[in-house]
């Protein structure tokens, strides 16, 4: 028989697991308030809010943040378009090599980032493409497409093909069918996929180091700051803001896809 309450041992184990995962993050938060700025000393000798002001005044933080937001937004848009089209093609039609294409689309997320990074870098070199904002976007789009594709393809499979035929039968052309039948049924999946893609792009380091030129995205900026012991808590302040900001879309994606198992079924 199942009891409503978990046994004590299980609770303790779960507590340890959570603490193991989240205490280091809390540590970062604590260091954002420390008065000591050369090394990470524990316990912090004192607490202050001055680093928030300092961070606010640093233009390099703002530049990195703006670049990261721009890269993440554009990568997400590219991923939404390509991922949805790809998912539609793979789930709607049968063609030779369909499974291969499906595998090839998913591959970038399974490949180590360093492989993706190196191969993109050599490809850009070969094609004589100078490193720029757009090479970062292209690098990020490779794995963002996967996230959107995976979300969309699962939902497409649940939207039965006869819904599209029913819509056409009732007088709707392809655009109307897309707008009134397909979009409402896949929109939450796309939103969730888009949010995940955004979060992925926003904290990406490895591929970015290979595809960025002189620009610094926020994670790259943080990495550089860590090796340079100057106003260290500024990094922690930025880290805290980033954690809070990326947490929201992930939470949103979770709530949007939760409980949608019954959506868009066969109508049976």
């Amino acid at each position: 028989m199942h009891s409503d309450r978990a046994p004590l041992g299980l609770k303790i184990a779960a507590g340890f697991g959570l603490a193991f995962m989240h205490l280091p993050i809390l540590l970062i938060f604590v260091y954002a308030f420390t008065t000591e700025d050369k090394s990470y000393q524990w316990p912090p000798p004192g607490f202050t809010l001055k680093w928030f002001g300092v961070t606010w005044g640093r233009s390099d933080v703002w530049e990195a943040l703006a670049l990261s937001l721009k890269v993440a937004s554009i990568s997400t848009v590219i991923a939404l378009v390509l991922g949805t089209l790809c998912a539609a093609a793979v789930s709607r039609t049968k063609f030779f090599g369909r499974e291969v294409i499906s595998l090839l689309v998913i591959l970038p997320i399974a490949l180590p980032g360093i492989i993706t990074g190196i191969s993109l870098r050599s490809a850009f070199n070969l094609a004589d493409i100078p490193f720029s904002f757009w090479t970062i976007v292209l690098g990020h789009a490779t794995f963002c497409v996967v996230v959107v594709y995976n979300n969309a393809v699962a939902r497409f499979r649940r939207v039965s093909g006869s819904l599209v035929e029913a819509s056409m039968d009732l007088g709707a052309n392809s655009f109307q069918t897309f707008r009134y039948v397909i979009m409402p049924n896949i929109s939450t999946a796309l939103l969730a996929g888009g949010m995940l893609a955004f979060a992925l792009s926003f904290d990406e380091v490895i591929v970015t180091t290979f595809t960025a030129g002189q620009q610094q995205t926020l994670p790259i900026w943080m990495l550089e700051e860590l090796v340079r012991p100057r106003e260290r808590p500024v990094t922690n302040v930025v880290a805290m803001v980033v954690v809070l900001v990326t947490f929201l879309p992930i939470l949103g994606a979770y709530y949007l896809t939760r409980g949608t198992d019954t959506v868009a079924g066969q109508g049976k």
């Binding site: 006869s162 819904l163 029913a166 039968d169 009732l170 052309n173 049924n185 868009a264 066969q266």
Partner: peptide, 17 residues
Amino acid sequence: YKRDVNTVFQDYALFPH
């Protein structure tokens, strides 16, 4: 969508949303 016929589908194909 340009034909003067309408269909009742085997699985009914009602729009779930």
